[in-house]
Amino acid sequence: MKPVLSVERLTVETIADDTPLVRDVSFTLLAGQIVGLVGESGCGKTVTSLALLRLLDEKVIRQSGRIQLDETDLMTLSDRTLRRVRGGQIAFIMQNPMSAFTPVYTIGHQLIETIRTHDRGSKREAKDRALEALREVNLEEPDRILKAYPFELSGGMLQRVMIALAVCLRPDVLIADEPTTALDVYNQKLVLYYLEKVRATYGTAILLISHDLSVIAEMADQVLVMRHGEIVERADVFDLFDRPQHPYTQQLLAQQGIQAGGMNA
């Protein structure tokens, strides 16, 4: 099968002093596949995700490599075309859902505007699609949510609204950067559940970035372990948990074990 997204030797450095932030990262995403990217905070996970969408300030940072989305190389696209790709073909769910919305407009306004920038259509149609998508992620009273302002909703609800938006736009690729880190355990599970629903229903490929091995264990097919900006191990999720090869992976799993041990005691 042909990959939806393939990244080859993605490298990100600062222009000022050539500090490498991400080095030689390569991976592919197939339709309906979830690839987990795991590592400590500051290891370059977020930089990688932003680099994929070319969201880094190119005055401060130099980025090289290939980012192939279907037939197009994102590295060669103009700002204008990129904007259409972002949110259209590639959607992005970030850690802090509050910062993904403008506080001054209602959720409905922002959802409808976003839907209409990517698909021409009347306001009415966009609103219907938004409502339907909100129902699909089991948000109660979708009408009220459309009228609400971002700060009136909880983090878990906002994250589900983000997933609903992904449902509307049917992106080929969804990059989810620590989508559940800011949530409590109850909401975490719900959000992951709906992510999986999107994948299963629409065959969306998901790059799931997390520092939490449990999230990876629940969701991923393939896992990339990142440390100091480099991929130190890549493996099938079962292989990784059963037979971790790299000492760093072994250390991460041991740390998870300490906490899990507390639970099963």
């Binding site: 355990v185 109850y186 975490q188 599970k189 992951l192 559940y193 999986e196 939490d212 091995l213 449990s214 999230v215 264990a217 629940e218 969701m219 991923a220 999720v237 079962f238 948990f241 998870q256 074990g257 899990a260 639970m263």
Partner: peptide, 12 residues
């Protein structure tokens, strides 16, 4: 609400 610690036990 706890997540699995190993893909073998995963529920989602």
């Amino acid at each position: 609400a706890m997540l699995a610690t190993h893909p073998r036990y995963r529920t989602i």
